[in-house]
Design a binder for these strands. Structure first.
Lengths: 210, 210
DNA sequence: TAGATTGTTAATCGATTAACAATC
DNA sequence: TAGATTGTTAATCGATTAACAATC
């Protein structure tokens, strides 16, 4: 098992390439090139080739890449050749937004359970999933072999829920609560902080000050 | 105007530091150190000092940093010493989640207008803002001196709406639609792609393959 | 003064870009 | 063959880490 370190930036770009290739494929285009992809997603052609080179040789010199093939290769690299069982915690507006987001199911992310602490939300249906009381999280997530937990809960309870998700056996957590979570090293964690994104914008708008 | 290039990673961390300092301040702690901050947010002390050094000297050798002062300095650096007028386009679940997100208002992001193309949503009230028809976007956003536009619309119409926001004079766009937008260089653009975040997780969960 | 911690420089590490041989 | 485009190496650029003098 050679662990040649792959930049996270490369993974993010691969995800973007794959989406671009889906569009290109839908247009019926058979062959593309690093230059085409680069133009389509706003990076350099060398970057595209370098990113792909981490994982193999997917093109033909002088010709380019077969769109369908390359797309499939990238999806496999990203782990999207199989479905993933996802548990969503928090059925507020954000939770509803996430659970109805079409992009998830298209990519094989199946929300198999939804939990909330509010008795008024428990029992309601979101999509085709019934909202369960938070107390059942560990038991149900374990039963469902849930691999990914999404935290759409207030910051104050995020750590506690994260601990429960880990107890239930999830391998990865996507955290929307604006708080730094402590998780063991074997758990993959990503934070999406909506305010941070706005703050990078406001810094840049005023950045001529520096 | 010296434009010494500041890494975006530094800006993101400053935002995280400021949030951490808010918590620390609430606990009544007066003085902190790069080591404390580093531990609180999961980076190295040298990183904290280096990030701050881009903008000045905010500490006292042998002592550390005054929590309130440092917090204020960082907020000013991020452009958060003033309010920002924000226009939200798209009053779906995600739009509602964003408009009710407390973290925005706390940081001075004031949603001054909300637009949607669905006649059933137009006229409803979100928080204390009435949803307006999308046709009024350019006119109203201009009137409100809107500086930031948030796109919570389907990918298919995101570019068109972005163009209208720019016509209305916004300086920055936060895009939640999974599509690559073309905007002029003077417009600050950030993309938040929910699926990409999940895909980085699934790659990492299976990353021992490489 | 002794201990602590900053601000800053130098060293290291990592990622991107440029160039080009390989080859279709 | 001539033109195009990949895959890969080397050069460049940028960010992080380590070390330490300055100084409270």
């Amino acid at each position: 098992m050679k662990t040649l370190k792959i930049p996270e930036a490369t993974i993010i770009r691969l995800s973007v390439y794959s989406r671009h290739l889906t569009d290109v494929d839908r247009k019926g285009i058979i062959t593309t090139s690093s230059g085409d992809i680069a133009e389509g997603v706003g990076v350099s052609p060398a970057q595209v080739r370098k990113d792909l080179a981490y994982f193999g040789e997917f093109g033909t010199r002088g010709v380019g890449y077969n769109v369908k093939d390359l797309r499939q290769h990238i999806l496999r690299i990203l782990g999207l050749s199989v479905d993933w069982s996802v548990s969503l915690v928090g059925a507020g507006h954000l939770g509803l937004a996430l659970s109805t987001y079409k992009g998830f199911r298209e990519r094989g992310f199946i929300i198999t359970s939804i939990f909330d602490s509010d008795p008024k939300k428990v029992g309601t249906t979101v999509g085709d999933v019934v909202v369960l009381p938070i107390e059942q999280l560990v038991e149900v997530a374990k039963q469902n072999r849930t691999q990914i937990g999404i935290l759409a809960v207030p910051a104050a309870v995020a750590q506690e829920i994260a601990d429960q998700l880990i107890k239930a056996g999830v391998q990865a957590i996507l955290n929307f609560a604006p708080v730094v979570l402590n998780v063991p090293p074997e758990i993959e964690l990503r934070n999406v902080d909506l305010a941070v994104n706005l703050e990078v914008l406001t810094f840049n708008v005023g950045a001529q000050r520096f």
